[in-house]
Design a protein around this nucleic acid. Structure first.
Lengths: 329, 329
DNA sequence: CTGAAAGCGCTTACAG
DNA sequence: CTGAAAGCGCTTACAG
């Protein structure tokens, strides 16, 4: 390993103190009131020696790492991958580096990741929390570490968050189905204490009050089997004329199972999905879906977090989703 | 911000030196030959005060950050998102944290990310390099920083890498098309100096030598327009009976355009794609494709890198891909 | 078995 | 305008 050049090396080379070098190179020249030519010599030497400041040392001294921890359910899921990309880009603008972890919707894993990230002294967290993780979120808050929840939140936890208008967008979407003439709806969601899930359910219930409808909730852990069972029931017992899926994972998995069973959409039954997926583009019929502004969610959560890092403001932001229900071009 | 508890705090609390505390808490108890009950008292106090070691301080002292930098083209692309997930999981087993960056296939962005990561003192890099980035890769090597390329490499750069058998798998895939009876093939790839791209092309050429065929290469930067133009040409001028796509991005974008144009697969024309995509599951006909072992690529690159971090061994590993050409169940 | 001390590479009051 | 020095929170040879 090539020896790294330090402040001291360049200080020695031109015979000044490390303090001067630090002032000049960190852009606090005025503060140190350094002479113009000295400053120039320092910059010159830094360039010659290819000086790269040691971030670690700086962090230890200042207590800031300029690093944020992002924890999502699964970084390989396109929805969260997009969020990660948005957070990465936006945080770069603030000179922040992002470290990412996947909780797999497990409170246990979340807790471990949080501990690891805290040991690494992250300046703040952006988290899409799994079910039943209030305690861990509150633990972070109790430590005084800035945090912004994204996509999901808990009503009774006082933290910053950036989410979409889950209840309203679901109402709009379901109302659209009613306008189209559907009269017997099934709603497929997860069992969850997370507010976004409750809100989507409430939106469904509100909009479908005047017609026949049924709500199915499955366990995330056994979703494949339970989803299939629920869909069979919807097809055979309830005989619904349209299914509303509450999340992107359920949407894609549900579509796949229906296709496998030979169900024709929308002839036999229509569907309403949540979140965009690239697979819709390849489906034989346009898929009605609620499109959340992922980029904006990511961007705004970084903005909210950096704001909180500065002045401890708690921001709660709700973005609007869009209903995509047009015929394919 | 709640005051963090340090080694010193717990040393003071029970009246021993920080050295002892350090030995006990970092598991080097034997090395410090610490007394059993002292050790117990220390552990007790650490728990009571909820002591979280400061990783930054440790890093400064030891020169190791236990952090690796992963740079891919685009973390929101499912292919790279899967790699990221694999790297994240595997590096966790080694106590390493991963920071991720997206180069967008730009050498300039790669260079910036590398500089940022070096300032953060990453212990090593895993990089899927963009075209013409040899210099940056060699710069990292010249600094003595361990690096493992993934998915792509340069033949004349002596670094560790983990890739798949690009030439062989392409040969196998194209041979399969010949066996199926196709006689006029088009190959769609990027203009690139990257070895994996050359290898895939060579594989195509070798296997299609006995029949009619044509190679099309497009610029990554203007891929949407150029791809469409090339596909039009293939349909109208070459009148190929099958198209071979060289990458996952080209495969999905190509399929989309063909579908849009009303081309029926495989009736009008068949396709052979590279890499799996979830969209295939929703296509009206099974898609023949080469499936790379993404999980294994990710895993092996972390193993190669950690090995190199220990003993400076350079490992070059080639994994086998699988041809998926079965009828849908 | 235990403690005092140096040092990792920075920043930043403080003193001249 | 410039330098000496303390200190961030650890680790680790060294001395007892």
């Amino acid at each position: 390993m090539v020896k790294k050049v330090s402040l001291k090396d360049i200080a020695q080379k031109i015979g000044v103190s490390t303090a001067l070098v630090s002032y000049v190179l960190s852009g606090n020249e005025e503060k140190g009131r350094v002479g113009k030519e000295t400053a120039e010599k320092i910059r010159q030497a830094a360039k010659e020696l290819n000086y790269q400041p040691n971030h670690i040392a700086k962090s230890l001294k200042t207590g800031k790492t300029n690093t944020i921890g992002l924890i999502v359910a699964d970084i390989s899921n396109p929805f969260f991958a997009s969020i990660a990309r948005g957070v990465e880009d936006e945080s770069g603008h603030f000179g922040l580096t992002t470290i990412i972890g996947s909780s797999d919707e497990s409170t246990e894993k979340l807790k471990n990741l949080v501990d690891v990230f805290i040991k690494r002294q992250v300046d703040g967290f952006i988290i899409s929390p799994p079910d039943n993780s209030e305690e861990t979120i509150e633990y972070i808050i109790s430590l005084g570490i800035p945090i912004c929840l994204i996509d999901r939140h808990f009503n009774h936890v006082n933290s910053s968050y950036v989410i979409t208008d889950n209840k309203e967008s679901m109402q709009t979407a379901v109302s659209h189905l009613l306008e189209m003439g559907y009269k017997n709806l099934a709603f497929v969601a997860y069992k969850s204490s997370l507010q976004h899930m409750k809100d989507r359910e409430q939106g469904f219930l509100d909009a479908s009050a005047t017609i026949q409808s049924k709500v199915y909730k499955i366990n995330f852990n056994k979703q494949q089997q339970e989803l299939n069972k629920v869909l069979d029931e919807i097809l055979e017992t309830q005989k619904a004329d349209a299914i509303v899926f509450a999340t992107n994972t359920l949407s894609v998995a549900g579509l796949k199972y229906l296709t496998q069973k030979g169900v024709q959409i929308p002839k036999d039954l229509n569907v309403m999905c949540f979140d965009f997926s690239e697979v819709y583009d390849f489906f034989y019929h346009p898929i009605i879906h609620v499109k959340q502004p992922i980029e904006q969610l990511a961007k705004d959560s970084v903005v909210a977090l950096t704001q909180q890092m500065k002045d401890h403001t708690i921001q709660k932001k709700v973005l609007r989703s869009e209903l995509i229900a047009k015929t394919r071009a």
